[in-house]
Amino acid sequence: MAVTEIQSGPSLLDRLSRPKPVIALALLLWLPLTAYVMFGHRLGSGAQNVLLPAIPATVLLYVLGVRAFRESRVAVIGLTLVFFWLLMAVSAPYLPLMDPNKPIAPFTTPFTERGDLFFWLGTDFKGRDMLSRMIWGCQRVLVWGVTATMVAYVVGAMFGLISGYLAGWWDEIISFVANVLLSFPVMVLFIVILNYLGPSGFNIVVAVTFASAPAIMRIVRGLALDIKTRDYVYAAQTRGEHPLYIMIFELLPNVRGPIIVDACLRLGYTTVAITTLTFLGLGLQPPDPDWGLMIRESARTAMLWKFSYMLLVPALAVSSLILGFNLLADGLREMSLRD
């Protein structure tokens, strides 16, 4: 039945499912969002419209994703959670929300009306709307989390390929450095780096790279050690290819499967890490909304049972995003094992 559906359905979606359109859509989603979050203050009045093209791109990518992952229910649930937050992130400026930084009515509990305004999720101790802060807050976690993970992957994969393929002294040195880095508790490493560099989004990227890249390097190194004994690598060597060509064109495409699954899991860890760092005051700085910041600011007030919603709202938001990443990883692994 599924087969006939594809044949009679619109071929537009099929054509969009190829790698190139998907990458184009992902860039269309990602570049405006990154620009908005990282350099929003420099964009001036243009900032208002920069996210507009990202909204249809997000919806389209979600549809393509559901089509591609329909075999695995777990993956679809994970994808839905992640894309829900992505959609919130790109459409936040256009939603009818109150200003997330404007104090209105402190200590309003959820589902109550104050004046003409109805507060779905209440307000925090300064009187800022929780719903608005929750939705705006996902932007920074998503952008910095994904950026940090990607940078860590580029660095980790590069060193992993070098160490696995070239072996010898390269491997000895890279593995030794990785072992030293891995021997620090992750949080200690984060705190040391951020204390030294000062708290900011870019420094979070640096810290996450230092903490994650060694583990990524080990995964890639192991895969490279296996793949470099394959005959096609041998064939490339015997036709005199440069080691760089072999690493990038022969090895890298074949390690991507396990790496993508691991990346989804690691996105979850990174989100936790960023939230924790912000909670500790080492990450993103106030006043702009951020989940970790929300937890930090309301931690004391939320001691009272009546105001626990101030903690629960950001905590549930961050949990749902991490759950989304983890389910996606689970689903992808399940699908890769099935074939």
Partner: peptide, 28 residues
């Protein structure tokens, strides 16, 4: 070593491998 051989020498000497499942890169 193969890095110091010129293209002509390399192309004169080629190999057919044993395992059909390994001989081609699955990604290309």
């Amino acid at each position: 070593p193969v890095q110091r051989r010129n293209a002509e020498t390399i192309s004169k000497l080629q190999m057919v491998f044993q395992n059909p499942f390994d001989t081609l890169n699955p990604s290309h």
